[in-house]
Simulated assay, not measured.
Amino acid sequence: MPSRDALPPLTCLRAFEAAARHGSFTQAGGELSLTQSAISRQIKRLEKDLGRPLFERTAEGLRPTPAGAHYFRVVQRLLRELGDETARLRRHGDDQQLTLASSPTIASHWLARRLPDFQRAHPEIEIRILTVEDPYRLDLDEFDLAFYYHLKGEVDPPGLLAEPLFGGEEVIAVCSAAYLERHGAIHDADDLLARHTLLVVEDHYNDWLTWEVWYRAQGLDWHPPAHRLRANSFQLLMNATLAGQGVTLGWAKLLEADLRQGTLVQALPLSLPSPGTLSLLTPQHRHLRPAPRAFRDWLLEEQGSAGRKGCSMDAAPRT
């Protein structure tokens, strides 16, 4: 029989934390890639070890007992701290590891296409990509360098230095060649609204990049389009654009490779200067290890930005 001072197995604690957070054994199992019965067995084992029930079933579903609710708060805090510290030690434990954070769109359309050249120059460096839509969710200890669009004048998490990678950026309307083949050419801005499908990001964080703003800033008449496809993810809209489902707004330099290869085409000969620019974000007050320093120097040289001064981070809107 285990000592009464022994801690419960980590698997039991993880199952309990997930079940209490979701209020469901089934959803906890889905998160942990376990069956509902496996979660139930872990909870019963933990309850036997503790000598008291942790959950009760009500008409509304599964609910922690008072003791279970208190234990959940303790376990959740400890598991989070353990996870954060484990990630920190893993990241800092090897000078040849490099963690790069960005939005999924930047990671897939821009960053991943530059990594092969860097890896050929630095085969000894192991790279990890962390995709986070919202820069507010970034923990400064989780990454070495990050890439987001930098928009001045907005409140943003402190502690980041921003170095613009592009001298200027244009926002353009893009679609796939297959879309034009199926729906015909887009004759002008009025025709786009009248006959075609506009892909729209439902995201308050990107209010500075909406179709209405794009139209009105160029002196174009705006009214709601005849057809819209909405999503809360810009990356999802980009996938829909590539699949020929409509026309979306995008950054010309971010999508340069797709435009050059013909997977995307400019739908209209119009553009709007972007208020934000893709920037390299570096946590301030941290000594850069050899791997992130090598990547930073390589990237800024590649982008023709070597020697450009960084500015204090005002904002980093995601794409």
Results as ranks from 00 to 15, higher is better:
Ala189Thr: 03
Gly167Ser: 08
Gly93Arg: 08
Thr26His: 14
Ser40Phe: 14
Gly51Arg: 03
Leu236Asn: 04
Thr131Gln: 15
His187Gly: 06
Leu151Met: 14
Leu270Lys: 02
Arg41Asn: 15
Pro283Gln: 05
Arg63Ile: 05
Glu56Ile: 10
Ala252Ser: 12
Val74Leu: 14
Thr86Ile: 10
Ala306Ile: 08
Ser271Phe: 09
Ala18Ser: 14
Asp314Lys: 13
Asp5Ala: 10
Pro164Met: 09
Leu180Thr: 01
Asp141Met: 10
Leu268Met: 02
Pro135His: 12
Thr241Met: 04
Arg318Asn: 12
Ala243Lys: 12
Asp191Val: 02
Arg120Asp: 06
Ser305His: 11
Arg308Ala: 14
Tyr205Leu: 13
Thr58Trp: 02
Gly219Phe: 12
Asp297Trp: 03
Ala101Gly: 09
Gly246Phe: 00
Arg289Glu: 01
Thr277Ser: 13
Asp95Lys: 10
Ile106Thr: 15
Ala252Gln: 11
Gly304Cys: 04
Ser305Gly: 14
Met1Cys: 05
Gly310His: 12
Val171His: 01
Ser37Arg: 10
Ile172His: 01
Pro283Thr: 08
Ala291Met: 04
Ala194Tyr: 04
His196Asn: 00
Arg63Asp: 01
Thr210Met: 05
Glu170Ile: 00
Arg114Phe: 13
Thr131Lys: 10
Pro53Asp: 06
Glu31Cys: 08
Ser108Met: 08
Val200His: 06
Glu133Lys: 15
Ala226Val: 05
Gly159Ser: 08
Glu31Asp: 08
Val200Glu: 06
Val265Asn: 01
Leu130His: 12
Phe72Leu: 10
Arg216Gly: 03
Gly61Ile: 07
Val174Phe: 02
Ala315Phe: 08
Phe295Leu: 04
His285Glu: 09
Asp191Gln: 05
Pro116Asp: 01
Gly168Phe: 13
Arg21His: 11
Arg63Ala: 09
Pro157Lys: 12
Leu264Asn: 02
Gln218Phe: 07
Arg230Trp: 03
Gly244Pro: 03
Ser3Val: 00
Asp221Ser: 14
Arg91Gly: 12
